[in-house]
């Protein structure tokens, strides 16, 4: 029942290992995205497996962030944006008018390019989601969720003595991990990361990458990155976007050693982009 619909880039002799192993969490068929008159994504189809990291790479303006933002309907906040085609999370069409976008976003969390902690305390930042979704019945329960989330994000030891301090007072890398803790506090199943390390130094980046690798055990993670090294380090699957189309999608190892497409090879060897 999970047989992937054949997609041009998936027609390889043997199915990518990661694709064969996992169950598909997110599936997209013939997705087109328009910003006003601009055709940002053309006929995109992709199957994203659960419990793995999928990286979207490609030059700026290729549509990778746009597609990422379609998966939790963050593009709804842009008035001129129009999405057609099918995107399913757990086989539920997320653009179905009956779907509650609030529920969808609780299930599909997002971490942004620039750390954007709320101007509240560290504790309140993490407690924000559980509070609005009513996930904790008591203060003790909320405390537990906050601690668990901060631990999962690898931030607990650094902030446990100053939970009441403002989240904006942390360093950039800590702020980004706080945003990850905030996202996982509502028990999402998918975590979307839009260039989560582009505003961080190499040490903070390494810390986040380790974290992504740990989180892969429990979540379906999709990460947009401009760093090919990062894609190679953290992801099991890589998708290469160019000019609004998905050029190639497959195992990260194969992609970086033996890409099927000439354009992919040119991009990852630095010939353009």
């Amino acid at each position: 029942m999970n047989a992937p619909v054949h997609h041009q880039t998936l027609v390889t002799p043997e199915k990518p290992k990661a694709l064969a192993a996992g169950q598909f969490k997110v599936t997209a068929r013939d997705v087109d995205v328009f910003y006003g008159d601009k055709h940002a994504i053309r006929k995109l189809s992709i199957d994203i497996p659960d419990r793995a990291v999928s990286a979207f790479i490609g030059p700026s303006g290729c549509g990778k962030s746009t597609f990422l933002r379609c998966i939790n309907r963050m593009n709804d906040t842009i008035p001129t944006c129009r999405v057609t085609g099918d995107i399913k999370v757990d086989k539920n069409d997320i653009y179905d008018p009956k779907i509650d976008v609030v529920q969808l976003r609780a299930k599909v969390g997002m971490v942004f390019q620039k750390p954007n902690p709320f101007p509240k305390s560290i504790y309140e930042n993490v407690a924000y989601g559980p509070r609005i979704h009513g996930l904790a019945a008591s203060k003790t329960e909320l405390d537990e969720i906050v601690e668990k989330s901060l631990r999962k994000a690898g931030l607990w030891e650094e902030v446990k003595d100053r939970l009441q301090h403002p989240g904006t007072g942390l360093s950039g890398g800590q702020q980004q991990r706080l945003c990850i803790a905030r996202a996982i506090a509502v028990n999402p199943e998918v975590i979307l990361m839009d260039e989560p390390c582009s505003a961080l130094d190499p040490i903070a980046t390494a810390r986040i990458e380790e974290l992504i690798d740990e989180l892969r055990q429990n979540y379906c993670i999709v990460i947009v990155t401009h760093s090919m090294q990062q894609a190679a380090r953290v992801s099991q699957l890589t998708a290469f976007f160019h000019l609004g189309t998905l050029v190639e999608y497959g195992d990260t190892d194969e992609m970086f050693t033996a890409p099927q497409e000439k354009r992919t090879q040119d991009y990852i060897t630095g010939r353009f982009g």
Binding site: M74, V102, R105, F112, P117, I132, R182
Partner: peptide, 19 residues
């Protein structure tokens, strides 16, 4: 970015404004 952060957590518009 603060509003986006809140929407991405599944907050509604009025929750985002209030909180």
């Amino acid at each position: 970015s603060l509003r986006d952060g809140s929407y991405a957590m599944g907050a509604t518009k009025s929750e985002t404004i209030k909180k």
